[in-house]
Structure formats: C-alpha cells, structure tokens
Design a protein around this nucleic acid. Structure first.
Lengths: 133, 133
DNA sequence: CTACATGCAAATGCTTTGCAACCTA
DNA sequence: TAGGTTGCAAAGCATTTGCATGTAG
C-alpha cells in the first residue's frame, strides 16, 4: 500500500460520487502534485480487484469508479453523463429465467437506468418550447 | 440510400449476429472492396437512427450492432466477448420502482447478462483442474 | 444541380504499457 | 535488497472528423 494508492482510495471515498479516472486524477493531484495519470489507472484497477471499490462499465466511452463495492444499480443522464445510484432493490432471481434456455454459464447481470438529470431536463424542456414556437 | 448503405444493411441482416463496426467492415468489404471504415461507422450510426438496426452499448470497449431493432436483452461472454440474445421477457414495470425516489426523468433501462459461453466454459474448467492439480 | 455521402488520412479520447528510477516491507 | 510501484512518454484501440471528390435524386 503506497502513499499514492492510499490517497486515491481516501479521495474516492470522500467524493462519494462516480468519478472517471480523470476526475480522480484531478482531485488526487491536489494532494500529490507529481502523481501520474497512469498510476491512477493502475491503482483504480488494483483497488477494484481487491474489492475496495467498484469499477463501473456503464454506457458511454468512459469507465467510472464507485467508492461502494457492493452490488447496486445506477442511473445515467443521457445528456451530460452524470451518474447516480438507482434506488432499486437488486433483482435476485432474474438470472433464473435464463437457466435451461441459454448455452451460457451465467455469472451475473448489469442493469442501468437511463434518464435526464434535473439540470438537463430543464434545458431540454426549454429547447422543446423553442422548437415548437 | 447509397449503394454502401444498402449493402451494409443487407449484410447485417444476413449475419444475424451482433457484429462490431470492424466486423461489419470486413464482411461488407467482400462486396465493396473500396469502402472505407469511416463510411461503415457513419452508416451504422444513420441506420440505427432510422430504426433499421440497433446500436448496442454493452460492457467492454467495443460497440456492437444488432439487425433486430426491437428492445431485447443480451448475454455476453466475459472471456471472449461473444454476444447472444438473452431469452428473457422485457421488464415492463421496473422503471416504475424509481418514480418518486429519483430526481431523474426516466427514459429507459438497459439489462445485460454476463456469463461464459460453452467454448470458454470448457477452457475455464480445464484451467481450474490444472491449477488444482 | 444541389445536398448529401464517400474515401482517405489525420485527429480524438480513453486507456494501457515499456522502462528506468524509486520506494516499501 | 527484492519485488512491486512510480513517473513519464509513447503506444494502442475504437471511433470521429476535415476535406476534396463523387454520386443520388
């Protein structure tokens, strides 16, 4: 556990959001100005393998990281990419529906909700009005 | 509707799989040797906007395309990336669980199953045995 | 004829990697 | 001091874009 790894973990836990590697880098840099982006990527990988954090592969190009390593779902804004936890209980038996009807060995599932956050929702309404007028 | 666009659509429908842009390119190239990868990307985008095909943003780095534009779920092999349809009925009311408990305007959801395809399953078992012995 | 589409190549954005120097246990 | 880790820079990969030319309607 190096200084860099410890600070990265501390900062992610302090943020309590769903930052990209680059966002983690920007925050950690305030405490460790000489840290490199590569180190951040490597440690985010290690920390998620250790089960300290969770790597999120949601839609879009950028991976995100979650201070909370427990299984839960997320909702993502289609306009700005903002991600929040989705307060929906895990679907415990959904995978059972596949037994017998797939050739795959089932390992898990991923559920993501798509929507518009309040800020983008307002902007969107305004655009609609403008287009209608 | 250019020759390129028509051929791309025909080939995706003939494949009936879940090809990446590059895989579409390789197949279409057999009929149109001078087509460019950029054209394939642009047309896949247009065709999915037209509702002729569907763009899939599953986990992993690569986007895939589906000849079937209707909503349905998929299962992806964690080892080789193979993708198949998941024979699970769409969850019609799952989004209702979010009403009132999220600040987002809900637009939809995405569900993906993760597993191991038969080929990788066999390979995995062999590895387990090797490690145990 | 005009607007849109193409081929090509360069650029983009995110992520990974090779390597020598550097810590940490 | 041995092995993992770092900073740096370059490479990798999927995708997008600028631009001059070509083509469909």
């Amino acid at each position: 556990m190096t200084r860099q790894r410890r600070v990265i973990l501390e900062e992610i836990r302090a943020m309590r959001s769903h930052p990209s590697a680059d966002e983690v880098y920007e925050v950690v840099r305030r405490r460790l100005p000489r840290i490199s982006l590569g180190t951040v990527y490597r440690n985010l990988e290690v920390l998620s393998e250790l089960g300290e954090i969770q790597k999120l592969e949601l839609g879009g190009t950028t991976k995100r990281f979650d201070w909370n390593p427990n299984k839960h779902y997320h909702i993502r804004c289609l306009d700005c990419g903002r991600v929040d936890d989705a307060p929906v209980a895990p679907l415990l038996s959904i995978e059972d529906e596949l037994y017998g009807s797939t050739v795959y060995e089932i390992v898990g599932h991923r559920l993501e909700f798509l929507g518009r956050c309040p800020a983008c929702s307002r902007r969107h309404e305004k655009d609609e009005l403008a287009n209608a007028g």
